[in-house]
C-alpha cells in the first residue's frame, strides 16, 4: 500500500490518506490484519509530515477501521469491501457493460464521469457528496 499525495488537489494531505485507505479497504486491496505503512514509510515515500499520517490514522481509528498495536504498527480491523463491488461481482459487470455501451454511444470519459457524478448526487443526497465525488474521481483514475 502506497499513498499518492497530490499537492495541488486542494484536499488536505491527511484527508487524502483517509480517502485512499478507505478506497483500498473498499476494493479489497487492504484486508483485515494487514499493516498500514508506518509514518516513517509514508514520510519517506511521499515527503509528508509524520503527524499528518498519524492524524489520518487516528481518524480511521475513530471510524473503527484500523487499530494501533503499540510497537507493531497500525492494523486493518475490518474491510469495506462488499461482495457486490468485488472485481468479479455482478454489479461491477453491469457497470462495465453500461460503460461499454456509453462509449459506443460516443461519450467521452469526462461525459461518463459527469453522468455518474450527477446520478450519484441524486441518489446519495445528504450523504457526503464531496467524498463520493472524490471517490468517483479516484475510480476513474484507476479504471
Amino acid at each position: 500500500m502506497e499513498f499518492r499525495i497530490d499537492r495541488r488537489s486542494g484536499i488536505a494531505a491527511y484527508q487524502q490518506i483517509v480517502q485512499q485507505t478507505r478506497q483500498a479497504l473498499r476494493l479489497g486491496v487492504l484486508l483485515p490484519g494487514d499493516r498500514l505503512p508506518t509514518a516513517k514509510e509514508v514520510a519517506e515515500t511521499c515527503a509528508v509530515n509524520p503527524n499528518t499520517t498519524l492524524k489520518a490514522y487516528r481518524e480511521l481509528e475513530r471510524e473503527g477501521l484500523v487499530e494501533p498495536r503499540p510497537g507493531l504498527g497500525t492494523f486493518v480491523l475490518r474491510s469495506l469491501a462488499r461482495p457486490q463491488a468485488a472485481a468479479d461481482g455482478p454489479l461491477r459487470g453491469e457497470l462495465d457493460a453500461w460503460v461499454t455501451r456509453a462509449r459506443e454511444a460516443g461519450l467521452e470519459r469526462e461525459d461518463v464521469a459527469a453522468l455518474v457524478a450527477s446520478v450519484l448526487e441524486e441518489r446519495f443526497t445528504g450523504t457526503t457528496v464531496a467524498a463520493a465525488q472524490g471517490e468517483a474521481l479516484d475510480m476513474r483514475g484507476q479504471g
Partner: peptide, 25 residues
C-alpha cells in the same frame, strides 16, 4: 522526514518555497 520521524529529531529549516512547507512542516 523519515530520519526525523525515526529519531524524533527536531527540524528547523528555512525556505521561501511554499511547496516545501505544505504537508512537510
Amino acid at each position: 522526514l523519515a530520519e526525523a520521524t525515526e529519531h524524533g529529531t527536531t527540524v528547523l529549516m528555512s525556505t521561501h518555497m511554499l511547496s516545501e512547507l505544505e504537508n512537510v512542516c
